[in-house]
């Protein structure tokens, strides 16, 4: 691990040509995730030229513009599909896809599960703030049952997706979940995800105090941050809990870490291209 002070680390990765401040509300968790990503990349000593950050639409979608990598802000829900093309064209590149819950799981849900099934070497970081923040607090695929949202004024009647568990089921070899309160843990998981050869997923549980939090009177940013701390348990702790107890908890930890699934671009090179060239010759 580098010993430089944190502010110096960020300075080497933020774009000086980009005008700050950023678009996020004061107290937002997305900046915390960005900080964790930057420190994770720094801890891996990656060359900035070999890193791409791709996003879709929404608050998290605005993340790449601030960092000095190869960055692309794409269309809503399609970041993984854009990143798939880039990864296939540049297999040695570290391609990090940052998305919100609506972006990754609603409009982009199809691409998310297929990238996991295909096991293409991308790192998907999903900032799960349980809502559509940029448009003002509509319900998303992860909005808790019973919560109110601007489009659920009578209470939300849909069960929510568990992002990390969905990724495991769809076949992603590395899946972890943490929160924006547990920053050091989050950074560690992100570094592990980026080091994974195949499709890796980190769910960063966050909150939106200016929309969903306000509508539900969940308090200010510090109150919601405290809830992440108090309402989360580790995978090990969760093992001792009943299904009913677990339902209300955020389960932190590594949910999958498999080495037995070949990565797509590697497999393509080793099997398809080799065979095609053999057939031609």
């Amino acid at each position: 691990m580098k010993t430089q002070p944190e502010s110096k680390v960020h300075e080497r990765y933020l774009r000086h040509s980009k005008k700050f401040p950023n678009v996020w509300c004061a107290g937002c968790g997305i900046g915390i995730v960005l900080g964790a990503i930057i420190r994770a990349i720094d801890s891996l000593s990656l060359d900035k030229n070999d890193v791409a950050m791709i996003s879709g639409i929404g608050c998290t979608g605005r993340m790449p513009v601030y960092v000095d990598f190869n960055t692309m802000h794409t269309t809503h829900g399609r970041a993984i599909a854009f990143a798939t093309g880039l990864k296939l064209a540049r297999p040695t590149m570290k391609v990090i896809v940052v998305m919100g819950d609506g972006d990754a799981l609603a409009i982009g849900g199809n691409h998310f599960i297929h990238a996991a099934r295909r096991n293409i070497g991308l790192t998907a970081i999903v900032v799960n703030n349980l809502t559509y923040g940029m448009t003002g607090g509509q319900y998303s695929p992860t909005t808790p049952l019973g919560a109110r949202a601007s489009t659920a004024p009578y209470g939300h009647i849909e069960p929510s997706f568990r992002i990390a568990e969905l990724a495991v089921t769809a076949g992603a070899p590395f899946v972890a979940r943490s929160t924006v309160y547990h920053v050091a843990e989050l950074q560690k998981y992100i570094a592990q995800a980026i080091s994974t050869q195949g499709f890796s997923v980190v769910e960063a549980t966050s909150y939106c105090h200016t929309t969903l939090g306000r509508i539900n009177r969940w308090g200010r940013a510090p109150d919601m941050m405290r809830r992440l701390k108090e309402n989360s348990v580790t995978v090990q702790q969760a093992e001792k809990m009943s299904e009913e107890e677990k339902k209300a908890k955020i389960i932190r930890g590594i949910l999958s870490d498999r080495k037995d699934i070949p990565e797509y671009t590697e497999l393509y090179r080793e099997q398809i291209i080799r065979q095609a060239k053999g057939e031609k010759a």
Binding site: I54, M72, T74, T75, R78, A81, F82, A83, T84, G85, L86, K87, L88, A89, R90, M93, N110, H111, H114
Partner: peptide, 12 residues
Amino acid sequence: ASMAAVIGAAVG
């Protein structure tokens, strides 16, 4: 996704 991947590859 096809169109998105095409654009991503072109950027690469």
